Computed example of a mutant assay.
Amino acid sequence: MTTEESILNKIQILITNHFETPEEAFSFFDADSSGKLKKSEIVKLLKQAEINGFIRGLVGSKLIEGYDKSDDEEIDWQEFKAAVDKIKTA
């Protein structure tokens, strides 16, 4: 399993074990209710998914880089859903 697959797998486990739906997970981590996850909120998600603290910031940046299709340096619901859908098919 690659590092990316491992990280996505941990995120999937977090969502599955602690939330009824991906929408509920998104809302929980969208602390300011902006409709978008900024890097600090993504880092919080990664912390809860038990991603090593040393790499959380880097992983957060890479997730934004990989899934932020609107280039606003945040992850909106559609971008989050695309990431979750990728996890389900991996």
Rank of each mutant, 00 (worst) to 15 (best):
K62L: 14
F19N: 10
Q78V: 14
M1R: 07
V59I: 15
T89F: 08
G66C: 01
D76P: 03
I75H: 08
A25Q: 06
A49L: 06
Q78G: 07
I51A: 03
I11K: 05
K88A: 15
D30S: 13
K36N: 10
I42V: 13
F80L: 09
K88S: 15
N9P: 00
D85C: 09
L14S: 04
V59H: 01
G53H: 07
A83L: 14
E65P: 02
E23K: 11
N9S: 09
S6E: 09
S27R: 12
A82H: 05
N52A: 14
F29G: 05
E20W: 03
N9C: 03
V84N: 06
Q48V: 00
F28N: 03
F29L: 01
F28M: 05
D72Q: 11
E20A: 12
K62Q: 10
E73R: 11
L14V: 02
T3C: 03
E5D: 08
L45A: 04
N52W: 09
G60V: 03
E20R: 13
D71C: 08
E23V: 09
D72I: 04
E73A: 13
H18M: 12
S40K: 15
D71M: 10
V43F: 04
K62W: 06
M1I: 02
T16M: 13
E24P: 00
E79R: 04
N9T: 01
I87H: 07
L58K: 12
T89D: 07
K86C: 01
E5F: 02
T21A: 11
E24M: 11
D76A: 04
D71A: 10
K81M: 11
K88L: 12
E74K: 11
Q12I: 00
K36E: 03
L58V: 10
K86D: 12
K81L: 15
V84T: 08
T3P: 01
K39R: 11
D30N: 15
K47P: 05
S70H: 15
G35K: 08
E74N: 09
D72H: 05
K38I: 10
L14H: 07
I75N: 07
I64Q: 13
R56Y: 01
A83N: 01
E5A: 08
E65L: 07
I42K: 03
G60K: 05
G57R: 10
D76E: 05
F54I: 14
F26M: 06
I55R: 09
F28T: 05
E41F: 06
S6G: 00
D85Q: 12
D68R: 06
K36L: 07
L14Y: 10
K44W: 05
L46D: 02
K36Y: 09
I13W: 12
A83C: 14
D76V: 02
K86F: 07
F29Q: 03
T2A: 02
A49R: 02
T21Y: 10
W77N: 00
H18R: 15
G60P: 08
K36V: 07
Q78K: 12
N17V: 00
V43M: 09
F26E: 04
G66E: 14
F26A: 02
A82G: 01
E79G: 02
S61F: 05
I15K: 11
E74Q: 15
G66R: 09
G60A: 12
L37H: 00
F28H: 14
W77G: 02
A83H: 02
I13H: 12
E4N: 07
T2Y: 04
